[in-house]
């Protein structure tokens, strides 16, 4: 524990009555690790009431973000994003398919977010968990509604052949706030994608491509996801980590684009939030998004 830990926690916790009742003398003392395991909500409450979080951050502080592009050479575009210790890798593979009859010039983009059992003890092998399904679904919705890609840019031959981009995001270490990391990796990978020149040959109904990959994608905007957690209905925590996530009463995700505009907002139920809280979160999200965009530019320049 570092210096910012409240003294009551460092010296061993006293099993106490809830704050609403007058304090009675402690009967059993537990060391802080045991207390954290047995009374996790009370553990966090004691930190937050002093304006600090167990990992030493203040309530409004985000974790350090790091992006690297191009690690996966089998993919047409790839990126790895780290938010604190949460690590995700996005690989984009482009294949050829027939367009839908109703939209003969439109290609496809298929995002999927996976939390394999490798990344955390809470995920077991088998069908995707609720968390990964909901993140995949939300990312898909943001891509569609914000018209991030002009799908007709992916057209090779109208009505016959279009590109389909499979954007698969795999989490390697889950320590909270997968949404922000996933979105960041996806956007970085999309910006990194280079497609080869493709030609459709009527003779054998096939597409042939050149070996060199030179064509980048045209993205209409750069969406950045920023997530906040709400604890006890009153404390707003920026970028909740794995210890805080199970005890949050609510969450808020905002998607900000490069000029500060709002692309999306998600508040999946939970305790209610006031108008001022929402506004202050939006402001904090804008500042964070600008910071992240700077890191993203830097990473893409290094490729």
């Amino acid at each position: 524990m570092d210096d910012s830990t409240p003294a009551s926690v460092q010296n061993g916790m006293d099993v106490d009555t809830p704050p609403s009742v007058t304090s009675t003398p402690a009967v059993f003392s537990l060391d802080s690790e045991t207390f954290k395991k047995i009374h996790p909500t009370e553990y966090h409450r004691r930190f937050l009431s002093q304006g600090v979080r167990p990992d030493g951050r203040t309530l409004s502080r985000f974790r350090k973000a790091k992006i690297t592009v191009g690690a996966i050479t089998t993919a047409h575009g790839s990126a790895m994003a780290r938010l604190g210790e949460t690590t995700v890798v996005c690989g984009i593979k482009a294949e050829i398919t027939e367009p839908k009859t109703g939209a003969p010039r439109d290609g496809f983009i298929v995002p999927n977010f996976d939390l394999p059992p490798l990344c955390s003890p809470q995920f077991k092998p088998g069908p995707p968990s609720e968390l990964s399904q909901s993140i995949s679904e939300y990312i898909n919705r943001v891509l569609e509604s914000s018209k991030l890609l002009n799908l007709s840019d992916l057209c090779i031959e109208e009505g016959r052949a279009v590109w389909v981009l499979y954007a698969d995001i795999v989490c390697l270490n889950y320590e909270g706030n997968a949404m922000d990391a996933a979105m960041l990796a996806l956007v970085a990978a999309l910006k990194h994608v280079r497609l080869p020149t493709a030609t459709f040959y009527e003779a054998d109904n096939a597409v042939r491509v050149k070996e060199q990959r030179t064509i980048p994608l045209k993205l209409s905007r750069t969406p950045i996801s920023v997530t906040f957690g709400v604890f006890d209905g009153q404390f707003i925590l920026a970028d909740p980590d794995i210890e805080e996530e199970p005890h949050l009463s609510s969450q808020l995700t905002v998607i900000i684009e490069q000029n500060g505009g709002l692309c999306g907002m998600l508040k999946p139920g939970g305790s209610a939030l006031g108008q001022e809280t929402l506004t202050s979160c939006l402001e904090a999200a804008r500042t964070r998004a600008t910071h992240i965009l700077g890191i993203l530019e830097g990473a893409l320049a290094e490729r």
Partner: peptide, 9 residues
């Protein structure tokens, strides 16, 4: 995504 897709030649 779409039902079937292929790697280009």
């Amino acid at each position: 995504g779409p039902e079937k897709s292929v790697v280009p030649l």
